[in-house]
Design a protein around this nucleic acid. Structure first.
Lengths: 165, 165
DNA sequence: GGCGATTATATCGTGCACGATATATCTATC
DNA sequence: GATAGATATATCGTGCACGATATAATCGCC
């Protein structure tokens, strides 16, 4: 018997006790719905700042002043340019950052926070306490869970990049 | 000092050791990026079946034959009608399900899988083995992690529903 | 120094997600 | 049995995410 698994590097049929019938018991749905819950928690915190959640993440990733290449943003955040380019343009239109070409390699794009952007970054970071509180977990437990999920993410990325035989 | 936390029920300033400066150390980003990684893993598995990941989740949630109300889908999956209605219409256009009004209460919508939908559901479930394998974890460890994440999700939903003082 | 291949970003089309709003049906009360 | 309010779904506009494609700059090789 062949499974969909054959489409990626999978040279044997993975043995499971039995297929799960409902989304609620699946790890993928746990991630999917937890991320939505997180987004719903962030929305009312970020909306008064005029930020969406992805914009907030970009704001953090841009650091506190130094120019960051679009390439670095792509790899750090795991997003494509077709997501980041319009997002950065919206943030530029809102006066949070400047986009300019790298003089030494005109292909590259350098992104730099404006003063307004830096101020908003500092302000947006105050949401962290709210989120910590909302989780109902200690910082220690939260860090442990964060590491498990990050390990899972890296493992999934490796599996996805594996070449079919 | 006031924080963004004041926007939701938060009657004290949550003490954190220090604000996190990079997305990589935040639980929200761990969820966000892990979900993207999961989506990228599913895409090549589901694309040959003509399914997106949310459609796959809906297909699972529709069970194996009995009519399901849109209301049940909304609560089970935590999605709004403005997400589900167009998604269900696309799936109906693809011949996977039928939508019809509840005769006893014409406001309600009943969703039922067609034979084609049931067949595709069975076929799509074979992806589970791939995903399990890609995680590199045992079923036991994966279940444990799934439960931790689900607990976090429920906690976040509770915190979000709390009324401000 | 010219030219194909590579690299970096941008653009286009589709689908998801959600706030806001609209419409249709039902319920309760009179 | 008319009507106000509640309930259920649908529609609209914006932004994210990504595959596919386009365009521009750089590099390598001759």
């Amino acid at each position: 018997m062949s499974t969909a698994c054959d489409y990626i590097a999978c040279d044997y049929v993975c043995a499971m006790t039995e297929p799960i019938q409902t989304p609620q018991d699946m790890i993928c749905f746990a991630l999917y719905s937890a991320q939505h819950a997180m987004g719903r928690l962030y929305r009312p915190l970020l909306e008064p700042l005029g930020l969406t959640y992805p914009q907030y993440i970009v704001l953090l990733a841009l650091g506190d002043g130094a120019a960051v290449t679009l390439r670095a943003l792509r790899t750090d955040l795991g997003l494509e340019t077709n997501t980041l380019t319009p997002l950065l343009k919206r943030m530029e239109a809102n006066g949070l950052l400047k986009r300019k070409r790298n003089a030494e390699d005109e292909r590259g794009l350098l992104v730099t926070l404006t003063e307004k952007g830096k101020d908003l970054r500092a302000q947006a970071m105050t949401t962290q306490g709210c989120i910590l509180e909302a989780t109902g977990l200690s910082e220690t437990d939260l860090t442990a869970l964060q590491r498990q999920i990050t390990t899972l993410r890296k493992q999934l990325e490796n599996a996805g990049n594996a070449q079919p035989a």
